[in-house]
Design a protein around this nucleic acid. Structure first.
Length: 893
RNA sequence: GGGCGCGUAGCUCAGCUGGUUAGAGCGCCGUCUUGACAUGGCGGAGGUCACAGGUUCAAGUCCUGUCGCGCCCACCA
């Protein structure tokens, strides 16, 4: 016997282990089954499950369970990402906290050992947390981006790209992280608006001998320290104010260097003074200007962001912000500071901490020619070989892909895939998959064995992530899984990594596999807090999914997320919502409990089409409709529709009506109708469990199992059961009409009872007017139900005009309960008058509509028909209301 | 500057290709501990669908504009 409530804690772990032990997560080997594959967005090994993961994985698990039940060989390929920077930082901090050593103190080898050690100890946390959510990943295939196999894939792709000329080494400005001392890609930089200043400097123009004159040219900057690296001043070639100065020179203060004034359209005459200082080594725009004019690139910062030897001695070793103050002070002292304006501008910060200011720095790095790789990736989406859901994200994708910049793929870190490049004594580059290969190439190149030095840098984490859809399936080997599951089916992710990841997978997949990595990209919402803020540790507004699981169970959390996963909108998560869906679980649990108590046991030979009772025929039809709706919704990635359909079906149809309506029967004598109803109820419950399983796997499986203990033994676990195929032939329109009539009648009687304040416990007789033959038959069939659910004592029929009415009930109840006692007559009179006025305006409006020829001629038949019916109904209601009003007034008098 | 999206009940949000009387959860009011469920039942209040125009027989839904809000990209000497 089921307990009164479902206790997730006692069930979840047990069922999960049972599934896993039974191998339920492994795709079927049956070659006749269609393959279905999702690769998980690999969480960082350093990660803890946050709400975004919970949503992301609830969606994937829902799809995987759905497709598995639909008979596909479903593979959910799991794994984790080594997360270069994040992981390195965590281990560095740990080293410092526990042993007081820096990574440089112990050296690269030892440090990497520590990272691996750390990974072994605590890297599995996020994976366990995914299990708690109920994620049915095939854990036997779990991969890690730094595994030997995946690392081999990385090396091979790198070498291929290099040999195809798509990876190259270049010296240009990169986004430099002065704390971590590494380059970052454009995407890892976040521009944040801050209040700052604009300093205006007057640079003295030099005479023919290079000596400063009194004439000044004013430039402005938000980064005064960079003036130490200025190598020109630019003015617009057509700017009348400065045209004549092009070709002359400026005596740069402090640095005391002569720099040219050049004409370049980059200088905007409208902005500031119209003249702009050019610092090619510290500004992306200036870099371009410098290239055009062949200006020297004078880098004045070292890798830690301190002023280097290229600047005057007074500034050596100063941090960039100290240097800023110093430069401003010195400029002021020298009389070169014209003015300071307050100024809001955006400053590049590192995207992770949002606290370190990124410096453009001139360094040698490895680049990937993304423009070339983007071409086929753009075409694939244009041609629809990969589709975004919702569609509008394609615009975002195109926008970025069409303006894609070279991708800086090297990082000056230790944790990651070391770049397979070696340098000869003359810095000649040898790129090869192994050192041996590189050495033999070098021997060929130099004509003798030559020692090589390996490039110490590692690759951007996202490089290996880009290979994920095929590297996890075994590439570069031609594995059975690769053949079977690539391309994969759908990628599920949030929009914030479309650029980081989706775009890169598209490029890499097409380059390496010559096919898109997935046919669909489902972009889901971001989970925010109740105020719509992005959840973040610093804001302290994080809701921990694990806490919610502890409190309400994994099913409740999953259902909440799925029910709210409307397309394209952010999810503002409120706890009350989770609670509501937990209650939904309880409701279903108790419905099952009710079935169990009433011996509704699934009969293996039960034929849903053979039912005789209209109520059962109706209910079976409702299940079919729901199966149809849920299937279509999940197929279309409309998870909220699917969840909503299930919620309404279970609660508002199955529990509220069906179970209530069959109570008189179940409590009555044994007989064919009772037997049929028990079997039908059990059938409906089973179908419901199946439909709900991808959404609430634990509760449904538990009920499924428990019923197998007391009823007919189950042939298998719910997780492996076939998805209900909607049989539209089982939808009996007549039975539905009849039951809707019964439900409507009960609702009306209840509503009227309440309106006239009949105590809930009171049993009343009811007079129904205008009963025709069909109505009489129906009443006969459902008499018990009507009496029970509407608390009627008796039902009398008259031949007078139409159906159950306020008037009739008022009339009859007066027999038992004096009207005056239960009704406040003045209030009631007022209410009725208002009601009458309202109905009258309704009638007028409908009359106007029906009087409109265009409407009658053009609107679909059923719309016009509906309007006519409504008109008649309204007129009838008005008559009744008027009668009731008159009666009240009589009673008052 | 370019792009995307949002504005519907007190709160959080659904509402697909225009078509009955605009829905849900939570909250609120009333009522009921009746043998599945108080994590519940039953009944109810609450909305000029941001605003202004337009298309249409018909607009929350389509178009234009206005106001307010959010996000992404780029730029800002």
């Amino acid at each position: 016997m089921l307990e009164k409530n479902f206790h997730p804690k006692e069930v979840e772990n047990r069922l999960y282990q049972m599934w896993e032990k039974a191998g339920a997560f492994r795709p079927s080997d049956d070659a006749s089954k269609d393959p279905y594959c999702i690769v998980i967005p690999p969480p960082n090994v350093t990660g803890r499950l946050h709400m975004g993961h919970a949503l992301n994985n609830a969606l994937q698990d829902c799809l995987i369970r759905f497709e598995r039940m639909r008979g596909k060989a479903a593979l959910w390929q799991p794994g984790t990402d080594h997360a270069g920077i994040a992981t390195q930082m965590i281990v560095e901090r740990k080293l410092m906290d526990e042993e007081g050593v820096r990574r440089l103190d112990i050296g690269r080898e030892a440090f990497l050992d520590r990272v691996w050690q750390w990974k072994a100890e605590s890297g599995g946390m996020i994976v366990d947390q995914l299990r708690r959510l109920g994620a049915t990943c095939d854990w036997s295939r779990e991969r890690f981006t730094m595994d030997e196999g995946l690392s081999r894939a990385v090396r091979e792709v790198f070498v291929r790209l290099y040999r195809d000329g798509l990876i190259y080494r270049d010296k240009r400005l990169v986004n430099w992280h002065p704390d971590l001392k590494t380059a970052l890609s454009d995407l890892e930089v976040e521009n944040i608006e801050v209040e700052g200043h604009m300093w205006h400097f007057g640079y003295p123009i030099a005479d023919q001998n290079g000596a400063p004159t009194d004439q000044r040219i004013v430039v402005a900057t938000t980064r005064p320290e960079t003036m130490l690296g200025d190598t020109a001043v630019a003015v617009h070639p057509d700017d009348e104010r400065y045209k004549h100065l092009i070709g002359s020179q400026v005596r740069l203060p402090l640095a005391d260097r002569l720099i040219p004034i050049v004409g370049d359209p980059y200088a905007d005459p409208e902005q500031g003074s119209g003249a702009v200082k050019i610092t090619p080594a510290h500004d992306f725009n200036d870099f371009e200007v410098g290239r055009r004019h062949d200006l020297p690139q004078l880098s004045i910062l070292d890798e830690a962001g301190r002023i280097n030897d290229a600047a005057p001695e007074a500034y050596h070793g100063l941090d960039r912000f100290e240097a800023r103050d110093r430069v401003v002070a010195d400029m002021r002292a020298g009389g070169f500071l014209e003015k300071i304006d307050p100024h809001t501008h955006t400053i590049p910060f590192d995207e992770k901490s949002k606290s370190v200011v990124i410096e453009p720095l001139l360094t040698d790095q490895w680049y990937l020619n993304a423009e070339k790789l983007a071409q086929p990736a753009i075409e694939a989406v244009e041609a629809g070989r990969t589709q975004f859901v919702p569609r509008n994200w394609e615009r975002t994708y195109f926008e970025w892909m069409r303006n894609i910049q070279p991708w800086c793929i090297s990082r000056q870190l230790w944790w990651g895939h070391q770049i397979p490049a070696w340098y000869g004594p003359d810095d000649h580059i040898f790129v090869a998959e192994t050192e041996a290969e590189a050495l033999s190439e070098a021997a060929r190149h130099y004509g003798a064995d030559t020692p090589l030095i390996r490039d110490p840098d590692v690759l951007d984490t996202w490089f290996s992530s880009g290979l994920w859809p095929f590297s996890t399936l075994g590439w570069p080997d031609e594995t059975a899984e690769l053949n079977r599951f690539y391309k994969t089916d759908v990628l599920v992710t949030a929009f914030d990594i479309i650029f980081f990841w989706v775009a890169r997978m598209m490029m890499m997949g097409l380059y390496v596999m010559k096919d898109v990595p997935f046919h669909t990209v489902y972009i889901h919402a971001l989970v925010r807090d109740e105020h719509g803020q992005k959840m973040s540790k610093t804001k302290g507004n994080v809701i921990d999914p694990l806490e919610l699981i502890d409190e309400y169970g994994a099913d409740a959390l999953r259902f909440t997320l799925l029910a709210m996963a409307a397309q394209g909108r952010d999810i503002k998560l409120a706890k009350s919502r989770v609670e509501g869906y937990r209650n939904f679980g309880t409701k279903l649990w108790n419905a099952a409990r009710f079935c169990e108590m009433n011996e509704c046991i699934a009969q293996p030979e039960f034929e849903p089409g053979q039912c005789q009772q209209p109520i059962n025929r109706w209910m079976i039809g409702e299940v079919q409709t729901t199966a149809l709706n849920v299937t279509e919704a999940v197929e279309g990635y409309r998870f909220n529709d699917a969840a909503g359909a299930l919620y309404r079906f279970v609660w508002n149809v199955f529990c509220d009506w069906y179970l209530e309506l069959i109570k008189p029967l179940l409590n009555g004598d044994e007989g064919e109708a009772k037997r049929e109803t028990r079997a039908a109820a059990a059938y409906v419950l089973d179908e419901t469990l199946k439909l709900l399983h991808p959404f609430m796997p634990f509760l449904t499986e538990e009920v499924w199992q428990r019923f197998g203990e007391t009823g007919h033994p189950r042939s298998g676990m719910l997780i492996n059961t076939s998805w209900p195929k909607a049989q539209t032939a089982l939808i009996d329109v007549e039975a539905r009409a009849e039951m809707e009539w019964v439900i409507g009648l009960i609702s009306e009687i209840r509503s009227v009872r309440s309106e006239v304040n009949i105590p809930a416990a009171a049993r009343i007789p009811v007079l129904l007017q205008g009963a025709d033959e069909t109505t009489r038959e129906r009443l006969e069939r459902h008499m018990d139900r009507l009496k029970t659910l509407a608390r009627l004592e008796s039902i009398k029929l008259t031949d007078a005009p139409p159906t159950g009415s306020i008037q009739a009930i008022l009339e009859e109840t007066t027999v038992h309960i004096p009207l005056k006692d239960v009704i406040d007559i003045p209030t009631e009179t007022e209410r009725l008058s208002k009601e009458i006025a309202k109905v009258t305006t309704d009638i007028d409006r409908i009359d106007a509509k029906l009087g409109n020829e265009k409407f009658v001629n053009n609107a679909p038949e059923h719309v016009v028909e509906t309007q006519r019916e409504r008109r008649e109904e309204a007129i009838l209601t008005r008559t009744k209301l008027n009668d009731a009003l008159k009666r009240l007034q009589d009673a008052a008098a």
